[in-house]
């Protein structure tokens, strides 16, 4: 029986291993790119609408509340006198 050349075997492992790793990652890249396109098309993000709106509402709310307090206090003082 011929002596097995283990270095050759190891080189074969290398070809197989690197081939599978690259194949796997290559398919992964394609799928992920496709997925990004599909998601961008069918589920566009709509985040920018919300953010600027909140602080404006807040300040308005605050001034209204202050106005209400002032009104209440003046009414109370009027009643007292």
């Amino acid at each position: 029986m011929a002596e097995v050349n283990y270095v050759m075997e190891a080189l074969k492992f290398m070809v197989l291993g690197m081939g599978v790793v690259f194949l796997f990652l290559f398919i992964l890249v394609i799928v992920v790119e496709l997925q990004a396109k599909l998601i961008a098309k069918y589920f566009p993000e709509n985040t920018p609408i919300k953010t600027p709106a909140t602080p404006a509402v807040d300040t308005e709310d605050e001034s209204r509340r202050v106005a209400a307090i002032i009104a209440a206090v003046t009414e109370f003082r009027k009643n007292k006198s």
């Binding site: 270095v7 190891a10 290398m14 690197m18 796997f24 290559f26 992964l28 890249v29 790119e33 990004a36």
Partner: peptide, 27 residues
Amino acid sequence: LLANPKTALLGGAAQFGIFGSLVGAVV
């Protein structure tokens, strides 16, 4: 990775460390 999927291939190339040293270990 999702922002730049192509860079995943670099993670593949670096696995040469495994198979290259496999040959080295057999030697």
